[in-house]
Design a protein around this nucleic acid. Structure first.
Lengths: 135, 135
DNA sequence: TCTTGACTTAGAGTACGCTCTAAGATGTAC
DNA sequence: GTACATCTTAGAGCGTACTCTAAGTCAAGA
C-alpha cells in the first residue's frame, strides 16, 4: 500500500522497537515520517539510513539531547554542516577515549583472572598434599 | 581517629560519591565497613581495592545485579574462586565484543566526518564560483 | 556553652531511555 | 458481516543507578 517501509519492517531492520521508533519521532530525532492513505507510517530508505546512524550514536553512548541537537542542525540543512561535523568530531574523540579506557579495564580484568588461576592452582596443590596425607 | 580512611577520603580516591559508597554497602556490594568509636565508617586498603575493582566492572557495563552475585561469591571465600573466575571470563568476553563494536562504530563515524568534509569543500568551491560570477 | 562540620540513618526523589496501555481506526480473510 | 491483525494516539509506568533529604549524633574549636 502506497510506498515505503512499514514501522514493523523498520523495527526489524534497525533492531529498534516500534515503540522506540515512534518515541524518536515524537522527541524530534526523526522528521515527521510520511503516511500511507490510512495514516500509517511509511519510512523511506533515507529515513532508515538516518535511524541507523542515530542508533550508532546511541550505542556509542551519545545522550539523547545531543542527538536532538544534531537532528535540529540536520533539519536546517547545508548551512549547518560545519556544526554537525564539529559535534561529530567531539563525539569521535570521546569515543576514542572511551575505547582506550575500556582497554585499560580489560587488561586489569585479565590480570584478575590470571590471579584467580594462580590461587586455583595453589588450592589444587594443597588438596593434593591433603589427599596424600590422608593415604 | 581510630584508623583507616574516612568516607570522604575514599570518595575522593575512588571517584564515587559518598552517597554511592553508602548505597553500595547497603545493597551488599561492600561488606559492612568497620566503624570508628563514633560510628563513622573507616575503610581499609582492602576495601578501597575492592571498590576500585567494582568501579571497573561498572565502567565496563556490568549491571549491579551481576556485581552483587560476584560480591556474594567473594563473601563465601576460596571455595567460590572457580565461579568468580567464570563470571569474570564471561565479562571479559563481553568486553572484547563491546570494544570491537565500538571500533566499528568509530570507523563509521569517521566516514561520516569525511563525508561532511567533502560536502564542505564542494560548498566552498560553489561559493568561489558564485563570487567569480559576481565579478 | 554554642556553633560548626562531618558524619549517621531510612526512605523519598530524580534522570534517563525507553516500554507499555487503552481506546480507537482501518484493511484483509473467511 | 465479523473476526483478526496492524496500525494510530496520548499519556502512564518502569528499570536502573544513583542522588538527595530530613532529622539526628558527635566531637572539636571560639
Amino acid at each position: 500500500m502506497d510506498q515505503g517501509l512499514t514501522i514493523k519492517e523498520v523495527a526489524h531492520i534497525t533492531g529498534l522497537s516500534e515503540h522506540t521508533l515512534r518515541y524518536y519521532e515524537r522527541i524530534g530525532l526523526l522528521d515527521a515520517i510520511e503516511r500511507a492513505s490510512n495514516g500509517h507510517r511509511r519510512y523511506s530508505e533515507r529515513d532508515v539510513a538516518w535511524i541507523e546512524f542515530l542508533n550508532r550514536l546511541r550505542l556509542t553512548g551519545m545522550p539523547i539531547r545531543h542527538m536532538q541537537e544534531f537532528a535540529d542542525y540536520r533539519r536546517q540543512g547545508d548551512p549547518t554542516i560545519r556544526q554537525r561535523r564539529c559535534l561529530l568530531e567531539a563525539h569521535e574523540q570521546a569515543l576514542v577515549q572511551q575505547i582506550a579506557a575500556l582497554e585499560r579495564h580489560l587488561t586489569a580484568i585479565r590480570d584478575k583472572i590470571q590471579h584467580y588461576n594462580l590461587i586455583f592452582v595453589q588450592h589444587y596443590k594443597t588438596m593434593e598434599i591433603t589427599e596424600n596425607a590422608n593415604e
